[in-house]
């Protein structure tokens, strides 16, 4: 589903859009628990469930930013706890490197956040989202990578 372009009518009305890729086994369950536990966190995230955080191709991140996301959150199991044993170890290498590349080309590194959240850590999930929304609000809308095709 396409993410519609942000329209800023006034500075206060702008709300960041964050695309969150959640691993099916830990983080998605963690988010679910946050909901069941009635924990409050900002409604700025759009969750996409992936089988493992290592499924997140860096191209997904760029595409999300191009199509209107202001930030991308990738959440996976804690290293060592991967359902597929080693998946998130690869995620860790890949996204650490990718983040440094984004920073190298002058992109705010805060727009890509990676966190490990287990199925039991509903509070940590809610905190992560809160923290990220705050950070992105400070940065303002992502204009730099956004497609101007429309």
């Amino acid at each position: 589903m396409p993410v519609k372009e942000n329209t800023v009518t006034n500075a206060n009305a702008w709300e960041p859009k964050i695309v969150a890729f959640l691993c099916n086994w830990c983080s998605y369950a963690g988010a679910d628990l946050a909901g069941v536990s009635r924990l409050k966190y900002p409604a700025n995230i759009r969750i996409i469930r992936v089988p493992c955080s290592s499924r997140v191709n860096p191209q997904f991140i760029l595409r999300a930013l191009q199509r209107g996301a202001d930030g991308v959150l990738v959440v996976g199991c804690h290293p060592g706890d991967c359902h597929y044993v080693t998946g998130n170890y690869f995620t860790r290498r890949r996204l650490t490197l990718f983040k440094s590349l984004l920073e190298f080309v002058g992109f705010e590194p805060e727009r890509l956040k990676v966190r490990w959240v287990s199925a039991a850590e509903a509070g940590r999930f809610a905190e992560t989202v809160k923290e990220m929304v705050e950070e992105i609000k400070l940065l303002g809308p992502n204009r730099r990578l956004q497609d101007s095709m429309l």
Binding site: P2, M149, L150
Partner: peptide, 11 residues
């Protein structure tokens, strides 16, 4: 064409 939802552009 580039298509985004209900809108698009032909180039």
């Amino acid at each position: 064409d580039v298509c985004r939802g209900f809108e698009g552009k032909r180039f």
